[in-house]
């Protein structure tokens, strides 16, 4: 690890939904600049909640959150944080609300106070980076599942964040699109945390993998490289694993 303070630091976080049992319990988590972290845990273990806590979308019942070395608690604190941390939602339909792709990708930069032409330049550049040239005037709801995922990644990247939080980025995608997204993520020059159920994907894109157990984040060394058998599409054909 390095000596700089963590950019995401969760201290003794406790969280429970109203009337429900605790989802996160005395959770401690440190994330440093340059880290590439995977998070693999069962459904309902609080992974998405963890992301929403970091973005200030839900409030912890108790505990402290420090981001970029500063404690954050009020809505105003989080406003500044949200431009530096980008969250990719599980469902692209939640993220894409504008009629056209261009308007959606430019929405973030415009909120950051960029002029219309600057925002459009950023949007063009981001779309081109993701291989989405010519998508500007496409209607968001008419995109395919894979295209929607790529465009919602574009809307997040257009904010030029320092950290990415990716919530199941491969969810519901076909083999080709998965490979494309995996490659894009691997080549990003950003720190990121990925939630996924796909251990192969996490092994190839992240340096360490954690899990959540009993509301706490654990470094899961058992999950580090190990021989395994599994079934996946076209598994009968010769193929390589990293």
């Amino acid at each position: 690890m390095n000596s700089a303070p963590p950019i995401i630091h969760l201290k003794d976080i406790h969280f429970s939904y109203p009337g429900g049992k605790a989802v996160l319990n005395h959770l401690d988590f440190k994330f440093y600049r340059g880290d590439r972290t995977g998070l693999i845990a069962p459904n309902g273990s609080g992974k998405t909640t963890l992301f929403h806590l970091i973005m200030g979308l839900v409030k912890p019942s108790s505990g402290k959150i420090e981001l970029f070395g500063k404690p954050v608690s009020t809505a105003r604190d989080f406003e500044d944080v949200r431009r530096r941390i980008g969250l990719l939602f599980q469902d692209p339909d939640d993220q894409l609300f504008s009629p056209t792709v261009m308007e959606d990708v430019a929405f973030g930069p415009l909120n950051l106070g960029k002029s219309k032409s600057e925002a459009q330049t950023i949007a063009h550049r981001t779309l081109a980076y993701l291989g989405l040239e010519g998508f500007e005037d496409r209607i968001t709801y008419k995109l395919s599942g894979g295209e929607k995922r790529l465009v919602s990644l574009a809307t997040v990247l257009a904010m030029e964040p320092e950290v990415l939080l990716l919530d199941e980025p491969l969810n519901g995608l076909d083999v080709d699109t998965r490979a494309k997204i995996e490659e894009i993520i691997f080549n990003l020059d950003l720190s990121y945390i990925i939630i996924s159920h796909d251990i192969d994907f996490l092994l190839s894109t992240t340096a360490q993998i954690y899990t959540i157990k009993n509301g706490k984040i654990l470094f899961d060394d058992k999950l580090q490289i190990h021989a395994h058998r599994h079934a996946h599409p076209h598994g009968q054909y010769p193929h390589e694993h990293e």
């Binding site: 973005m55 406003e79 980008g86 993220q95 609300f97 973030g108 950051l112 904010m159």
Partner: peptide, 13 residues
């Protein structure tokens, strides 16, 4: 609710 949260994440004011 989720759409609104996603908008907040992108600096919606």
């Amino acid at each position: 609710d989720r759409v609104y949260k996603a908008m907040l994440c992108r600096g919606f004011k």
